[in-house]
Measured scan of single mutants.
Amino acid sequence: MSGNGNAAATAEENSPKMRVIRVGTRKSQLARIQTDSVVATLKASYPGLQFEIIAMSTTGDKILDTALSKIGEKSLFTKELEHALEKNEVDLVVHSLKDLPTVLPPGFTIGAICKRENPHDAVVFHPKFVGKTLETLPEKSVVGTSSLRRAAQLQRKFPHLEFRSIRGNLNTRLRKLDEQQEFSAIILATAGLQRMGWHNRVGQILHPEECMYAVGQGALGVEVRAKDQDILDLVGVLHDPETLLRCIAERAFLRHLEGGCSVPVAVHTAMKDGQLYLTGGVWSLDGSDSIQETMQATIHVPAQHEDGPEDDPQLVGITARNIPRGPQLAAQNLGISLANLLLSKGAKNILDVARQLNDAH
Rank of each mutant, 00 (worst) to 15 (best):
L285I: 09
V103G: 12
V265G: 04
G48T: 12
V202R: 09
R201C: 07
G287D: 06
G192M: 05
E135C: 09
I291A: 13
L351P: 10
E135W: 11
S96P: 03
L81N: 01
S37D: 05
V143M: 10
A40C: 15
G221A: 07
G72M: 09
F108A: 02
T78S: 08
K128C: 09
S57Y: 11
P47D: 09
V263F: 07
Q229N: 14
Q356C: 00
C261R: 04
A189W: 00
H207W: 14
L220I: 00
Q180V: 09
S57W: 10
R255G: 14
T172E: 03
D359H: 13
S284R: 15
A354S: 04
L245Q: 09
C114W: 08
W283K: 01
D352K: 10
Q229M: 12
G197H: 03
Q153K: 04
R156Y: 05
L276E: 03
N322L: 06
P159C: 13
V123R: 01
G281H: 05
G203W: 14
T102V: 05
T243A: 04
S69Y: 09
K140R: 12
L97C: 07
V130T: 09
L68H: 05
E210W: 15
R201G: 09
L338C: 08
E139A: 13
S45C: 15
D286C: 08
L134M: 10
A339E: 02
T78V: 09
Q153G: 08
V90E: 05
T133H: 07
D273A: 04
R164Q: 08
L85V: 10
E250H: 01
A354P: 15
F51W: 11
E293S: 12
L244W: 03
N358M: 15
Q153Y: 13
I166L: 11
L329D: 10
T294K: 03
Q356L: 10
L232V: 14
D178I: 02
K227L: 15
L341V: 10
D91W: 01
G60V: 10
A219K: 00
N200T: 14
P309M: 01
T78G: 11
L188F: 08
K128T: 15
V93H: 13
K115W: 05
D289R: 09
A339Y: 04
V224M: 15
A270P: 01
S146L: 04
Q181W: 10
S284C: 11
L232N: 13
G281L: 08
M56W: 08
T279M: 05
L154T: 08
R167T: 11
G216K: 00
E73A: 09
T243R: 06
L357F: 14
V224C: 14
R175C: 11
G221P: 04
A112N: 00
V235T: 02
P264K: 00
A354M: 14
A297W: 12
T298M: 09
A266R: 04
M271I: 15
G111L: 01
E135N: 08
K98Q: 03
E258T: 01
T298C: 08
F163I: 13
Y213P: 08
L64K: 13
R246N: 08
I166D: 00
F158C: 12
D228S: 09
Y277P: 02
E293F: 08
H239I: 10
D61K: 06
E223W: 01
K87H: 07
L137H: 05
T190N: 15
P106F: 13
F253C: 01
G259T: 13
E310F: 00
L100A: 04
